[in-house]
Nucleic acid binder design. Structure first.
Lengths: 136, 136
DNA sequence: GGACATTTGTACGTATGTATC
DNA sequence: CGATACATACGTACAAATGTC
């Protein structure tokens, strides 16, 4: 139930409700969320509010939205282990558009990258949803 | 100059223009961006488009917006170096809401975290915009 | 391949609430 | 207190991608 108040924005409340559906397992990875129009009707809010809420979940990396299709819960993926040499420096940040393309990160997915440098030289860039780094 | 086209959304173009102002140093850290209304007039776009563009920059951690005041360029932060012990496993992902609060990540900023575990035990969680990890 | 309905993406305007100065 | 500026929320319209027939 969404209640209008200055304290808690409607889009945040909706995001909380949908997040609970996902983390509780009522909507499982790969499954579709209700369409935007359905969410509007079900929760009695405008489309902008629905879209804002979905955006929050996208930013958390919980869901992926495909235009003309729908929004679905992201599959949690097995992560490959990558060994990092001693003396390396690891930076964590969001990827540039070029890096997204390079790494094949889906549009709409919020995936951080790890940049491994040794002596100032970049040794590798890894997508956070596919890799774990281990120290040798 | 912003040109309407299906290829490149107006809000992305505006974000690109403003980002260039910042990265080129024409607008320096701590300085204010033009007010939303000013941006509307200057670039001939609606308010939603301006806000969407500013949101992009907030998500990139480039600017900070204060309600009732304005949007300013964020002070660039030096990253602290954190040593990671040998045999550690580093996961990179987006933070939960609780972790955001714990780490003091500003609302709207899209900042990944590194989770360092040794033998399955969590040894530390670090915000990507404030630390670099180094292998001992 | 085209025609169509559905769904998400972008963009606009407008109104109201809330924080800052 | 008023003026200004950002936050939220609504409605509307059209564009673009998808799936189906």
């Amino acid at each position: 139930m969404i209640i209008r108040s200055g304290r808690d924005a409607a889009y945040r409340q909706l995001a909380d409700l949908l997040r609970a559906e996902i983390t509780s397992g009522r909507i499982r990875p790969g499954q579709l969320l209700p369409y935007e129009k359905r969410l509007q009707q079900e929760y009695g809010v405008g489309r902008g509010t629905v879209r804002r809420a979905l955006q929050v979940l996208r930013e958390e990396g919980l869901v992926v939205t495909e235009r003309g299709y729908s929004t679905r819960v992201r599959e949690s993926q097995e992560r490959e282990r990558v060994a990092v040499p001693r003396g390396a420096v690891i930076s964590i940040r969001m990827p540039t558009e070029a890096e997204r393309v390079e790494l094949g990160i889906e549009p709409g997915a919020v995936v951080p990258v790890a940049v491994v440098t040794v002596g100032g030289r970049v040794r590798g860039i890894y997508a956070g949803d596919r890799v774990e780094l281990t120290t040798a």
